[in-house]
């Protein structure tokens, strides 16, 4: 198995606060791994370090064997790591089509002067880019809404569009940050199917942050649990559900002593 991502003894300090402490995690190709933990455990901090939005205080992140610490965010995306955000971050005033076309930007293949002079090369490439985007949107059943402004979409579709936009950047590794936040059970069900679907279709490796235990336990193959910036447990969903440290982190010490399993 090829190792897609390997983080080793990763640390992140915000002043005196240690948001992430000796964190390590490995992701194998094609794997769907969950990253869970109580609020403020440092899960999103890990994502921000992998995508280059936060500077790493110490430690290493290897992506297909290459150290990506210190590489600027846009280059990391171009190397094949895409993400979604906990609170949806679409380009709110742009159309659905433009939201996805922006993710295709580094495949545009024409320069600034081409676009100003409107050369034939520009027209060809722009048409190609747009048609590709439309076909891509069709996969997510969003093509009929291509001219709609992103912020006017219903919540579930905004989530879907955000995932579609991340995939348009043609990633090999997808980081999903709480994709089910604010969704009702029916929507969570269709999200689960969507995640399975994109993973098979785009041959992705996925790292997923989620609070909805039902989702995590049913779709992840391995789970890493964080609390206060540290890894407290890792294993299969079954092992995690009965892990005393995990139960303690989520439900408190007495619950852990009573041996209450974490609800599936």
């Amino acid at each position: 198995m090829t190792m897609v991502l390997r983080m080793a003894s990763l640390n992140k300090y915000f002043g005196g606060l240690r948001a992430c402490c000796d964190f390590d995690l490995t992701l194998e190709e094609g794997e769907l791994q969950g990253l869970i933990g109580p609020n403020g455990a440092g899960k999103t901090t890990v994502f921000n370090m992998v995508t280059g939005l936060y500077a790493v205080s110490s430690g290493s992140i290897e992506y297909y064997g290459r150290n990506i610490v210190g590489v600027p965010p846009h280059e990391i995306t171009q190397m094949g790591i895409a993400r979604t955000f906990q609170n949806i971050r679409l380009f709110p005033n742009l159309s659905v089509l433009d939201n996805v076309r922006i993710a295709y930007h580094f495949h545009a293949g024409y320069g600034v002067s081409d676009s100003i002079w409107r050369s034939g090369h520009f027209s060809d490439k722009e048409r190609e880019l747009t048609e590709r985007t439309q076909e891509f949107l069709a996969v997510f059943n969003l093509h009929t809404r291509q001219d709609e402004i992103a912020r006017n979409l219903p919540y579930g579709e905004q989530r879907r569009l955000e995932i579609a936009r991340a995939l348009a950047a043609e990633p090999k590794l997808l980081l999903l940050d709480e994709p089910a936040a604010g969704m009702n059970p029916a929507e969570v069900g269709s999200l689960m199917e969507l995640i399975h679907f994109i993973r098979d279709r785009f041959k992705l490796t996925i790292l997923l942050i989620e609070h909805q235990m039902r989702l995590v336990m049913s779709i992840c193959e391995r789970i890493t649990v964080m609390d206060f910036g540290e890894v407290i447990a890792r294993g299969t969903p079954n092992e995690i559900q009965n892990h005393p440290k995990v139960i303690e982190a989520y439900l408190g010490r007495t619950a852990a002593l009573r041996g209450a399993p974490l609800a599936g």
Binding site: L53, F85, A166
Partner: peptide, 12 residues
């Protein structure tokens, strides 16, 4: 629209 999202979408 959103500088962080733009970065995450590969925009320099």
């Amino acid at each position: 629209e959103d500088e962080t999202a733009a970065k995450a979408m590969g925009i320099d």
